[in-house]
Amino acid sequence: MAFLSSRRRRARLVLALDDPALDRLLKALLATTRTGTIATTDLCSAQISRLMDEETDDWDRHTQRMSVLAHCLSETHVPRAWTAREPGNARARVLHAWSLLVRARAQRSLADGNTIAQNCFRAAELAPQDPTPWVVLLGLARLERRGQPEAFGIWNEVLARDRWNREAYLGMLRYLGPDEMGSRIQVLDFVDAVRARAPENAPCTATELTAQVLQYHSVLALGGVEALMARNHWTHVEAAQVLDRAAHTWARPGFLHHAAALADLNLLAYALIAAERRHDARPVFEAIGGQVVSWPWSVGGEPVAEYEKARSRTTIGG
């Protein structure tokens, strides 16, 4: 993993994680969209296509890159205009659909559900092996609060193309939670099934820890005495065992090698600090090297400031 380093670095928010090619693309897209010229969309789409052409069949990295691009371009005209210019381009259609989904989540209002679905189904026809149209359809099913048979059907379409797709597993985890269309019991059953079947370093490895962090956040959200005692969540046997497994393996050089590994290490560092396991958190912070992702740090405030505050605590006690 390129980001592993023992040097203490100044913390910064990273959208591209440890993907230098994607980072260069995001900077190029920002510079291009600022020009305001009539050729902006053509240039942006060419820059995106050039990067995507390098991936071959690495669906894990492809999904991660599509997710980042959709979030970064959701407030621009680029995805829609690219699709209009190249209606037979599956990547353009997925990016358009995903950017609309990101916008709908941010606005908490779904005005383009049909457009999202149509783009995804057409993209699936154009690129049958690509899991990302189905990843976006799963996100749409969550937003529309579709029933579980339909959601699981879409989820299985993703898995048929990319068995351990991180985005799909984390999406289903939230869908099965009490805040969406499931319950705490269904979350536990889902997590048990993932732990029993998935390799320890699969791209979806953070599903179990994410479930624990979401449960911890649900206690914090109660406020009052419950929030003050939320740290006790990590003393429960199940939560402590999840942290043990991750803390003992994830920060090892080369153990995690999926595209969003850096995001998972941020999650682990956050959980270890919440559990007051500062000694265990130190090597994780070293592995992160100051490269911060928004969630879960944003739950407590500004992500970089929260990260720095947490990292400083690892120098105090054990």
Rank of each mutant, 00 (worst) to 15 (best):
L138P: 11
R231Q: 13
A271Q: 03
M66W: 08
I316T: 12
M229K: 13
S74I: 04
E226T: 14
M66Y: 11
D264V: 05
H77Q: 06
F121M: 05
A46V: 07
Y216S: 10
H96I: 09
I154L: 10
W250H: 00
L143I: 07
D112L: 10
L51C: 01
Q107M: 04
F121V: 03
R7T: 15
N89C: 07
R103W: 14
L188D: 15
V293F: 10
L15W: 15
L243G: 00
G289V: 01
R108I: 11
R93N: 03
E200A: 13
S6K: 13
E306V: 13
R93P: 06
D18F: 14
A160D: 05
S6Q: 15
Q215D: 04
R93V: 03
R24P: 08
M52K: 09
V94M: 12
L73A: 08
D23Y: 07
L110Y: 11
E55S: 13
T33C: 01
N119I: 09
A111K: 12
L15D: 13
R245V: 12
Q129S: 08
T32G: 08
N89T: 03
V242H: 05
N119T: 02
E86L: 15
Y307F: 13
L176N: 03
V225A: 12
R93A: 00
D280K: 09
L137I: 05
E208K: 07
R7G: 11
A151L: 05
Q129N: 10
T207E: 05
R24A: 05
L137H: 05
V293K: 06
Q215F: 09
R93G: 02
A21D: 00
N156E: 14
R142G: 12
R161S: 02
E306R: 11
N119C: 08
G153C: 04
R146F: 10
D244Q: 08
D280T: 00
R93C: 09
I154N: 02
H257M: 10
V102N: 00
E238A: 04
P199E: 06
P149H: 03
D189T: 00
R80W: 14
T315W: 13
P149R: 04
H258K: 01
I154M: 12
I316M: 09
M229V: 08
F255V: 01
G153K: 03
M1A: 14
Y175K: 13
V292W: 01
V293H: 02
L265S: 12
A117V: 04
A193G: 11
S49Y: 11
A141V: 03
R145D: 07
N119R: 12
L265R: 09
D280H: 12
A2G: 03
T63Y: 15
A31K: 11
H248R: 15
Q129L: 10
A239R: 02
A106K: 06
E167N: 15
L228A: 07
A246S: 11
A287L: 08
E86N: 10
G317T: 01
E55P: 15
G153M: 08
A81Q: 01
R277Q: 07
R195V: 07
R91C: 15
R65F: 03
L188W: 15
N232M: 09
G289I: 04
P296E: 00
A81W: 04
L69E: 00
L173M: 01
